[in-house]
């Protein structure tokens, strides 16, 4: 249409106009996406190219851990130790909560918050305690925002955190295998591999996963320096995280932080493969139940009432 020879003059003027328009457009685009540099400036080559956790060999893993410790020092001014304790051979973890004892005081929520270096501004925690009508497990009446003295008359309390399912729907849906179930039953996330699509958050029936909507902020003095790669190290922005049964503690034989903090002694933790363990005694002697059993997720997290 515009290629007739007698239009050549107009055509060349038009070409100049097009070039000017294209230049202007590109400049405007560069200006528009310029805030991206705030993000890319903080992103190092090593971070960008880091391999999946399972693909790191021993040396590479050591290098990554050392780099993460250095980054924590640079960003937060704190000396932290980031270990990577492997699952203990032959151990399969499980948790149980005695709902007759739990009074909804929320000490576990706070202990988790501190232990796992959660964002301070949001009081983030892997545990949510629901207040229910006594005599009912109908979550429809549940509320987590209660702030009155507990236990309130006619109420019961249900702490919910990751159920460490044996058939976890969250790991199936992950498009990049950034989350998986370890041999000791703990479902973990590689925070350096997660792309932040939040499909796992949609798949989890227990509201166990959290997304880092922004960079977590923690005062240096409050940072727990005892950290591990797959659990409580300070998370990057834009990735999903979850309860790991405090694997940096439990894989060293120690109890999870939420259990130690529980003033009512409602929490029981242990090794399902050890028939003398506390958790096995609960399973053998209490009539336990799991949340949303009908979904077939096979939780490693049990609840019971004893009166």
């Amino acid at each position: 249409m515009s290629s007739e020879p007698d239009e050549r003059e107009g055509s060349s003027r038009r070409t100049v106009m097009k070039a000017a328009g294209a230049t202007l457009g590109l400049a405007a685009f560069a200006k528009a996406v310029q805030p991206l540099t705030e993000f890319t400036d903080t992103l190092t080559r090593e971070q960008f190219l880091q391999k999946h956790y399972k693909e790191l060999d021993a040396d590479e893993k050591q290098a990554v851990l050392a780099r993460l410790e250095a980054e924590a020092k640079a960003t937060h001014g704190v000396d932290v130790t980031i270990a990577d304790p492997p699952p203990i051979e032959g151990v399969k973890f499980a948790f149980a909560i005695n709902l007759s004892l739990c009074n909804g005081n929320g000490k576990c929520v706070e202990a988790c918050h501190r232990e796992n270096n959660h964002d301070r501004a949001t009081n983030q925690s892997y545990i949510r305690v629901l207040e229910l009508e006594r005599g009912s497990l109908d979550l429809g009446s549940a509320d987590s925002s209660y702030d009155h003295a507990v236990p309130a008359p006619g109420k019961a309390y249900l702490p919910v955190q990751c159920q460490q399912c044996d058939a976890p729907p969250c790991t199936d849906v992950c498009p990049v295998e950034a989350t998986w179930k370890e041999k000791d039953g703990i479902v973990v996330v590689d925070y350096d591999w997660c792309i932040g699509c939040r499909y796992c958050e949609a798949a989890c029936p227990y509201h166990a996963r959290r997304f880092n909507w922004t960079k977590p902020e923690i005062p240096a003095a409050e940072i727990n320096p005892n950290q591990s790669y797959l659990s409580n190290r300070i998370r990057p922005q834009g990735v999903v995280e979850k309860c790991t049964f405090c694997l940096h503690r439990t894989r060293e034989g120690r109890l999870p932080a939420c259990l130690e903090a529980c003033p009512t002694g409602a929490r029981v933790f242990g090794d399902m493969n050890d028939e003398r363990s506390e958790i096995r005694w609960i399973l053998a002697n209490k009539r336990v139940f799991v949340l949303k059993e009908e979904l077939g997720t096979k939780p490693s997290f049990f609840y019971f009432f004893d009166r």
Binding site: G106, V109, D143, S144, S145, V150
Partner: peptide, 19 residues
């Protein structure tokens, strides 16, 4: 009895009914 001192601060979370 105890008073819970640490509550999550969720954006846009609304309390259900009256307690």
């Amino acid at each position: 009895r105890m008073v819970p001192t640490f509550k999550p601060k969720d954006r846009f979370l609304t309390r259900k009914g009256e307690h």
